[in-house]
Simulated assay, not measured.
Amino acid sequence: MDVLSDVIAVMRSGRPRSARVAWHAPWGQRFPAAPGSAGFQVILQGSCRLIPPSGDPVALSVGDVVFFPHGHGYGLADSPSTPLAEPVCDPLEDAELFTSDFVGQNGPVTVTLCGGYQLSPGHTHPLLRDLPETIHLPARLGHHPELRAAIDLLGNEIGNPRLGADTIVPALLDMLLLYILRTWFENPPTPDKATGWAPALADPAVSAALHAMHRDLARPWTVQTLAAQAGLSRATFAHRFATLAGQPPLTYLTWWRLTVAANLLCESDAPLGQVATRIGYTSEFAFANAFKRQYGIAPGKYRRQRTASARP
Rank of each mutant, 00 (worst) to 15 (best):
P132V: 03
P204R: 11
Q247A: 15
G14W: 03
T167K: 07
W184A: 10
T99W: 01
E146I: 12
L181I: 01
A194L: 02
S120L: 05
T99K: 03
P121S: 02
A288K: 01
G116H: 00
G116N: 03
R15V: 05
A9E: 14
I151S: 08
T110C: 15
A77M: 10
F287Y: 08
V275R: 02
A308L: 12
T277H: 08
A270G: 01
L147M: 12
I151W: 10
N106K: 07
P199M: 10
G115T: 03
G63D: 13
I135G: 07
V7Q: 07
L92I: 09
Q294C: 08
I168C: 07
M1E: 07
T225D: 02
L176A: 04
Q41I: 15
G142I: 09
D130V: 00
D94Q: 13
R293H: 13
H125N: 15
T243M: 10
V21E: 06
E146G: 09
F287L: 00
V7T: 13
S47R: 15
A38T: 06
L4G: 05
A286Y: 01
G164P: 00
R15D: 06
L97F: 05
H214T: 12
Q105E: 10
H214Q: 08
R240Y: 05
R303W: 00
A194I: 04
I51H: 12
G159V: 03
G280E: 03
G300V: 02
G36A: 01
P191F: 05
D152R: 14
R140I: 14
L76F: 13
H211W: 01
A149K: 13
M175W: 12
E133K: 07
L253N: 10
W255Q: 14
H72N: 08
G231I: 04
T134N: 06
A270M: 09
I297R: 10
A200Y: 02
R129D: 13
D56Q: 14
F31W: 13
I158M: 03
M1S: 11
L272M: 11
A77K: 09
A262F: 02
E186H: 05
V3L: 15
V66D: 09
P191C: 05
R219Y: 12
S81G: 07
W27H: 11
Q118R: 15
N187P: 04
Q229I: 01
I168W: 04
V206Q: 11
E96D: 13
G273Q: 08
P199H: 11
I158A: 00
E267T: 15
M213P: 02
H123M: 10
F68I: 15
I135N: 06
R306D: 02
T236N: 14
A218G: 08
I279G: 00
E93A: 06
P220T: 02
P126N: 09
L4W: 09
L113N: 04
I43M: 14
C89L: 14
R293C: 05
C266Q: 14
P83F: 06
E284L: 00
A261W: 01
R278K: 11
V275W: 03
F31I: 14
R257Y: 04
D56P: 11
L154A: 02
G115V: 03
L217S: 10
E284F: 01
I51Q: 14
G63A: 13
V275S: 02
F285D: 00
R257H: 07
K301L: 10
H211F: 01
V65I: 14
H211K: 07
V169P: 00
L127V: 15
P248N: 09
E186Q: 11
T183P: 02
L173K: 02
H70R: 08
